[in-house]
Design a protein around this nucleic acid. Structure first.
Length: 268
DNA sequence: ATGGTCGCGAGGCGA
C-alpha cells in the first residue's frame, strides 16, 4: 500500500496536475491540504474518474482538507475534538477546515493543515501552538488506548523541526521568522515523544532535501526550500514502512503547487 | 529553470 500527502494550493487550479499525478504515482491514499474551496466547487468527478472515494472538508476559499482513497474510506471525522477556534481579535471564532480523518485500508489517516503562525508575535502563533497541543493530546491517547493502532498524521505542519530543514537557518534566525522557533519545534517534538515517528526522513536524508519552495525569489531553482510536510506514523504503522519519497519533480514547471507530494510505502 | 509569485475573486488577504 502507498499513502501520500500533498498541499496542492487550490485543488481547482491544480486539477489537471492532481489527476496526472494520481495516474503516475499509483498511490492508494492521498491526503490533500489547501483545497481552497467549498463542497459545491469540489472536483468530485476527478476522483470518481480515477477510482477513488473522497471526503472533503472545506468551509470557504481558505484552507480545506480532503482524503482520497481506493482502499476504503470509513468513519470520516471533520475537525478533531476540541479543535481550537480562531477569529481575529477574538471575533467570529470558527473551527477552521484544517483536519479530516478517515480509516483507509486499516489505517487511520489524518489530513492536517497546521495553522501558519505568521509572525512570532502574531496572535496566530498561540493559535498554532494550542491547535498542535490539542491534537497531540488526542494522538497520544489513541496509541495509549490501542498500541496496535495504525495511525498516519500527515500534512503541512508549517514547522521545520531541524536546522537543516531550511536552506539557511541563520537567515531565518536573524529575520526572526516562524517555522524554526523553539516553541514550534517543541510542539512537533511532543508528537515524537507521544510515539509518532517521521517515517520519511530516514529514506530522504538531508541536508538540502525539502518539501516546499516559496513561489517568490526563485526559491525553487535556487534550491532554497523548507521541509515542512510530514508523515508521522504510530509505532504499528511505522513498523510497516518500507520506503518513502518526496516527489520534487512535481514542483517543476508552470502550474506547480509550491509544495511537493510526500509518499510512503507500506508492507502489506 | 531559462525566471523577480500565486490563488481567489474582483481589492486585498493569505501563504
Amino acid at each position: 500500500m502507498k499513502i501520500a500527502t500533498w498541499n496542492v494550493n487550490s485543488l481547482r487550479a491544480r486539477a489537471d496536475r492532481v489527476e496526472a499525478w494520481l495516474q503516475r504515482s499509483d498511490c492508494d491514499v492521498l491526503a490533500i491540504q489547501e483545497t481552497k474551496c467549498k463542497d459545491e466547487n469540489f472536483p468530485w468527478e476527478l476522483f470518481e474518474r480515477m477510482g477513488y472515494e473522497v471526503a472533503h472538508f472545506g468551509l470557504s476559499q481558505w484552507n480545506g482538507v480532503a482524503i482520497a482513497s481506493r482502499v476504503g474510506l470509513d468513519d470520516v471525522e471533520r475537525t478533531f475534538m476540541d479543535q481550537p477556534a480562531f477569529g481575529k481579535g477574538g471575533k467570529d471564532e470558527t473551527q477552521e477546515a484544517r483536519a479530516i480523518g478517515a480509516t483507509c485500508g486499516g489505517v487511520r489517516v489524518w489530513s492536517l493543515y497546521v495553522p501558519n503562525g505568521r509572525a512570532l508575535d502574531d496572535e496566530h502563533m498561540p493559535y498554532k501552538l494550542s491547535w498542535l497541543d490539542t491534537l497531540r493530546s488526542h494522538a497520544e491517547g489513541w496509541v495509549k488506548a490501542d498500541p496496535a493502532a495504525q495511525i498516519a498524521l500527515m500534512g503541512d505542519w508549517n514547522i521545520a523541526p531541524h536546522d537543516e530543514d531550511v536552506w539557511d537557518i541563520d537567515y531565518f534566525r536573524s529575520a526572526g521568522l516562524t517555522h524554526v522557533s523553539e516553541p514550534e519545534r517543541a510542539a512537533f517534538r511532543a508528537f515524537e515523544d507521544a510515539g509518532y515517528t517521521d517515517v520519511v526522513r530516514p529514506h530522504t536524508p538531508g541536508p538540502g532535501v525539502y518539501t516546499y519552495w516559496d513561489y517568490t525569489q526563485l526559491r525553487f531553482p535556487k534550491k532554497e526550500g523548507m521541509r515542512i510536510d510530514f508523515v508521522l506514523a504510530s509505532p504499528a504503522l511505522a513498523a510497516r514502512v518500507t520506503g518513502a519519497a518526496i516527489d520534487r519533480e512535481e514542483r517543476k514547471g508552470k502550474g506547480a503547487s509550491d509544495h511537493a507530494p510526500v509518499l510512503v510505502d507500506l508492507a502489506n
